[in-house]
Design a protein around this nucleic acid. Structure first.
Length: 267
DNA sequence: TTCCAGGCGTATC
DNA sequence: GATACGCATGGA
């Protein structure tokens, strides 16, 4: 899908349908975006920072202080701009509840996040609430002036991570760092593994169970066939799909999950 | 004060 | 393989 944009001074102006900043940046798939007083979002992934705003409710977005090169190399990929969400939603809307869910939260896009950042972020997310998750990740990024790689965290211990106030999750982070650095977990290989194998591999990390593994796969590896099951999605399945998901979700169950998750929480 | 947050490890049956 | 329980922390 062609990306429609132009430069405007120091900014990039992007025309993009099926995209809403609240839906995409404040939906619990990424934890480093904050809404500013003027309804823009300021955030980052790895060491790339951005302020993005919507031009008065239209399909026009302003990426502030961004070069064309940075837009093409970083943000076009991150915001998954080459995927036609209109087509995906049309496919999912063959199903009645999914049709309602797409109408409710139609501005969601799956961010193509860094695999390590997503994996470690969702380890932190378990049995935790979003404001506190953001606080812990914010302290981590402040300490390292950006999101630290596993290599940068090689000497961390439960004690040295105390300033994060991440509770029992600190030992899980330490285990994830150690398994990535030892080569026990090879993130780039996991990307291309069959879903079950990828999942089982991630679950060898302490503190990574089915839910965290699926979130890491969906949000960190763009595995749109991964289907994270939390308490809300379990409710979705019990109430609306007791016989399983409809055929139209094949291959994009994870994207369907996002629309359904936000829709059932709104009821 | 008590409850809960997009779970998981462990013990026990 | 199913089910119960503890777990760090902080906001509601």
């Amino acid at each position: 899908m062609a990306i429609e944009y132009k430069t405007d001074g120091n900014d990039i102006l992007l025309r993009q349908s099926d995209f809403a900043l609240d839906d995409t940046l404040d939906c619990g798939q990424a934890f480093r975006w904050e809404k500013t007083a003027d309804n823009a979002y300021h955030g980052a992934f790895l060491n790339n920072q951005l302020t993005i705003s919507c031009e008065n409710g239209s399909d026009l977005f302003r990426l502030h202080n961004t070069t064309e090169q940075e837009f093409i190399e970083v943000w076009a990929d991150y915001f998954d701009l080459s995927t036609d969400y209109g087509r995906l939603k049309a496919q999912l809307s063959e199903d009645e509840m999914l049709s309602k869910a797409c109408a409710y939260a139609g501005g969601i896009r799956i961010l193509r996040q860094d695999s390590w950042e997503a994996l470690s972020s969702f380890i932190i997310s378990q049995n935790n609430n979003i404001p506190r998750i953001k606080g812990i990740i914010g302290r981590l990024c402040e300490h390292y002036s950006g999101y630290p790689s596993a290599e940068m965290m090689k000497d961390e211990t439960v004690e040295s991570l105390g300033y994060l106030r991440s509770g029992f999750r600190a030992k899980y982070l330490v285990d994830a760092v150690s398994k990535v650095l030892s080569g026990e977990i090879e993130l780039e290989k996991i990307r291309s593994l069959p879903l079950d194998e990828a999942r089982n591999k991630l679950m060898t990390i302490k503190g990574v169970g089915p839910k965290v593994a699926d979130c890491a796969l969906l949000f960190g590896f763009y595995r749109t066939d991964a289907f994270p099951m939390d308490v809300w999605v379990k409710r979705v399945m019990a109430q609306w799909y007791p016989n399983g998901l409809p055929e139209c979700t094949k291959g994009i169950r994870g994207i369907a999950q996002q629309y359904l998750f936000h829709y059932i929480r709104s009821l």
